[in-house]
Nucleic acid binder design. Structure first.
Lengths: 159, 159
DNA sequence: GCTTGAGCTAAAGTTAGGTTTAGAAATTAT
DNA sequence: ATAATTTCTAAACCTAACTTTAGCTCAAGC
């Protein structure tokens, strides 16, 4: 179980396409745990290339680095993930993706219902309250695309 | 065509759910053009509530503020958008949404093909090169989820 | 007319996910 | 042995989209 020589950060960078600085950053975020050689340089497992690929894929799926760290914690420490490890995580990805697709399709349907309707003063507009899941942190408007029913009835007063 | 009194920023904030600071920020980004009253305070058209709602919706569709500014420039200056104005922009939204849905569905299909495959050393993995459209700015890995075919054949040398 | 609330500006801070810079030390190549 | 690469750390910088803070001024209520 000797650690072998390990590979340098530049090797991982070249193999993964990530910048050296990004790999160091991932270490600060707890996504990788390299050891140091006698001269103080980082040394990685060859298998960490997969960890990096995993990170890149998970980012494409919209996961944040803390979330990805959570996934990686479920992976076995030093060894290569087994098919089971990977299948478990992939299934999580799938749920995530399905939810996002569903949200987008709902938005599209709402939009379809709205195209041509004018949306001039429509508190009942289909885009009324789209922030189902994919919404940001903010509170969001209460009356999207329109004022509240009564208060905005008057047109350009004084025109 | 006198400007009437206009409404204050706090009114827009309350009606839209946006923070006052966000509305000011949008002005700096060219999304709104309030005028000033005698005391130097911002005064807005009532119809600017709709501009704000528009901004919030467009953000949910994934557009950046510069992009939204582009949309708003196609809207009529001081008046309420007509059904035609809105339909034109909605169609743009729709294309955008369709593209995103399609990308996600492709990713899901790739993922389905990958679940259970193990992905231990798979340069031919279906997640090989997912950055079709929705990819980030980065270059992306050349061999996702695996080292290149030949070089990574050896398992934990020295174990 | 005084007090309080709303609004003003400029500048700094925030979060995520990194990159860039600078200067020093280690490693590799010749 | 020397030169050229890499790597190291710490700190500053970057973008987007805002928020917060500080110190004032304006407007509104009684």
């Amino acid at each position: 179980m000797a650690k072998s020589a390990g590979v340098a950060i530049g090797y991982l960078s070249e193999r993964s396409g990530l910048a050296v600085s990004a790999i160091r950053y991932y270490e600060t975020q707890g996504l990788l745990e390299p050891w140091r050689n006698a001269g103080g340089q980082r040394r990685f497992h060859r298998a960490d290339i997969r960890r990096l690929s995993f990170i890149m894929i998970a980012q494409q799926f919209g996961f944040s680095l803390p979330e990805i760290r959570g996934f990686l914690k479920t992976l076995p420490g030093g060894r290569t993930p087994t098919p089971e490890d990977w299948a478990r995580i992939s299934t999580g990805f799938r749920d995530h993706l399905d939810a996002r697709i569903e949200t987008l399709q709902k938005m599209r349907d709402n939009l379809d219902g709205c195209i041509g309707c004018g949306c001039l003063s429509l508190p009942k507009c289909a885009l009324y309250n789209p922030q189902d899941q994919a919404a940001k942190k903010g509170k969001g408007p209460r009356y999207l695309m329109g004022d509240s029913p009564e208060l905005d009835a008057a047109p350009e007063k004084g025109a």
